[in-house]
Design a protein around this nucleic acid. Sequence first.
DNA 1: AATGAATGAGAGTTCATTCAT
DNA 2: TATGAATGAACTCTCATTCAT
Lengths: 211, 211, 211, 211
Amino acid sequence: MPDSAAPKTSRIQQRNRKRILDAALDVFSQHGYRGATLDQIARQAGLSKPNILYYFNGKEDIHVTLLNQLMDAWLAPLRDIDPAGDPLAEILRYVHRKLDMSREYPRESRLFANEILQGAPRMAPHLESDLRPLVDTTAAVIDRWIAAGKLAPVDPRHLIFSIWATTQHYADFDAQVRVLMDDAPVHADAAAFLETVYRRLLTPRPPAPGA
Amino acid sequence: MPDSAAPKTSRIQQRNRKRILDAALDVFSQHGYRGATLDQIARQAGLSKPNILYYFNGKEDIHVTLLNQLMDAWLAPLRDIDPAGDPLAEILRYVHRKLDMSREYPRESRLFANEILQGAPRMAPHLESDLRPLVDTTAAVIDRWIAAGKLAPVDPRHLIFSIWATTQHYADFDAQVRVLMDDAPVHADAAAFLETVYRRLLTPRPPAPGA
Amino acid sequence: MPDSAAPKTSRIQQRNRKRILDAALDVFSQHGYRGATLDQIARQAGLSKPNILYYFNGKEDIHVTLLNQLMDAWLAPLRDIDPAGDPLAEILRYVHRKLDMSREYPRESRLFANEILQGAPRMAPHLESDLRPLVDTTAAVIDRWIAAGKLAPVDPRHLIFSIWATTQHYADFDAQVRVLMDDAPVHADAAAFLETVYRRLLTPRPPAPGA
Amino acid sequence: MPDSAAPKTSRIQQRNRKRILDAALDVFSQHGYRGATLDQIARQAGLSKPNILYYFNGKEDIHVTLLNQLMDAWLAPLRDIDPAGDPLAEILRYVHRKLDMSREYPRESRLFANEILQGAPRMAPHLESDLRPLVDTTAAVIDRWIAAGKLAPVDPRHLIFSIWATTQHYADFDAQVRVLMDDAPVHADAAAFLETVYRRLLTPRPPAPGA
DNA sequence: AATGAATGAGAGTTCATTCAT
DNA sequence: TATGAATGAACTCTCATTCAT
């Protein structure tokens, strides 16, 4: 039992941290930060409450850790827009990836939505340091595409907002969508709809002949 | 002296109930239902905590009252779409009204967003009874417009979702928007952007000549 | 309207005080002192809560007033035992009157029971000043009757306790009695039973021949 | 190390649960359910208020647990009446056991009295399911004894009520008894008195010669 | 004589966190 | 590493009482 425990526990540690974060994602995304309780998280994780506080320094620590971990994955699709790719195709790919994430990771979407709704008290720094430069860069790329006549002119930042809004809506407002769309293949229809929206919006048009 | 007594007492009641609801709107929209406390609401309303419970039967009563009162105002723009009006103009008017509401009533928007995010525990009945028939009706109107060739073909329900999503985004994700848009005239730019989006999306196009 | 109001209000006062005390008797006897609320009393009395406090100085005042008022009526049967009457008949009459009171005034019985159960915090003085001398006197009468050979020898105080206990039981433990005696004519049977008990207990017997 | 762990933690639990129940018995029996506060119970138990709620699910849980636990002990003497024993001796033994219980467990007696006085809101089911069949059985036994000429004829249920009433009186109305019986050996005198009462009541008499 | 409005004190309960092992 | 036990702070809500009219 002397030194063979270290690696073993390390593996246990990792597994337990993951369990806790997964349970916390469930609970936080459903009830919000204040509405969530450590008891719920502990029960869901199959651990005792004090044991959870052995792995994390408190409720807020869990929440912040979650937000930080998710930030990267959350921004990946935006990062992956290829300035050298076909502009319309790049945008549409981004739209579809975001929509897919709403379907596959609705808890993450709701976690962020909750945080932003409440004024981003725990995420404001990250927005400044991580999100903002990325959006600035992407907006510049889009502007260049527009200047090159490869996209119809639009405000790039509001374009990004609209993509976030329309795709995350299917995760964040799922309760409402489900009431209004019983049985319909929501995701497929949404994908087709958004494809249409952004294709019509962004397809560059030849200047009017008489102009 | 006949009926002049009733309003006298009612005056105070009405004023205080309004104060409380206004304060509660502030607090609930910012912290969510569970995150809000009667203490905060009382402080903001300038009343004592027990006095608040003299006017309402409890925290939940205040919340439900708020949601009920707001539901009507919230749906009004959708109700006002005129089936006899010009289709594109009607839709665009709706978009602008929704966007204006996001600017003028961001708390209401966030209150609803919070409620829906958490699965609409206290509003599900209203969604079924009030929202759903209204959306069904409106979708039918749009479908008729499309069939008449007055709008480009789109899925009417996803169109509605996209309008909600893009307009409410400026209220619900305000904290994020502000980080990314310092100093810009957000509202005016958003209005122009959305005008472009829905105009390009919905303007009926003549069939391709060769088709 | 100058001085004609006084007698008029005085009548209203009396009527309202009675209403309040009657309502309070209901509520106190059912829920105990601490379990009763002024709201319940006010509702039952058909008056507003502040108006009740116009007539009485507080919750305790109502309770004490009730206890004081009832004390006299409660002790009347004991006072009415006639030292000059037929001993056995006097005792039996007392038993039957007490039993009748349990049927006709169960609320009063329970009010007293509640008070005594809790250590008589508000009635201890009355017990000392009113009840004790009366019991002492009655015990002396009974002792004299026994000495005169007109009653079989028993401890007079424990005799009195047993009469109180057996008769008040039908009011105080009514909930239990009803569970165990569905449909039976409880009161009549109890009267017959107690008649038997005290007749057999108290009928003087001739001394054993050989004694 | 197999099963020795369980009792270890259970030791503290059992001890604290007992402490709490004992304190609660004190407080509930003196002030009634509504009049009792968790603060009082906690203080008396030497525990913090939240710690009490760690062991019980709330005030009502403590109360119900108490009533359930006591029910068995409370009915034991009645269960122990031996249908094969000597009738008069069995009854007298029951009377004395009940009287002893009033002296040794007055709090339990008052707890029950409080509950019944208020209509048995939390004990009605137990009365139906536990008490009633037991009383039915016992009444049948007594009826058989009477039919066999071994007891003077009396209504068995009212006999039982009278035993309950007269014995429990010394616990439930202790505050009153003490005022009226200073210094007397109440319990011994009561025992002698009740012995007389039930002996005279139940001793079968030979039919009057002339009858 | 009466009441709508208001409140301080305190009730039961929840919960993040700490203690002890 | 893990957990039963414990608690201070805070929460919602109740209630006897007071205020103002």
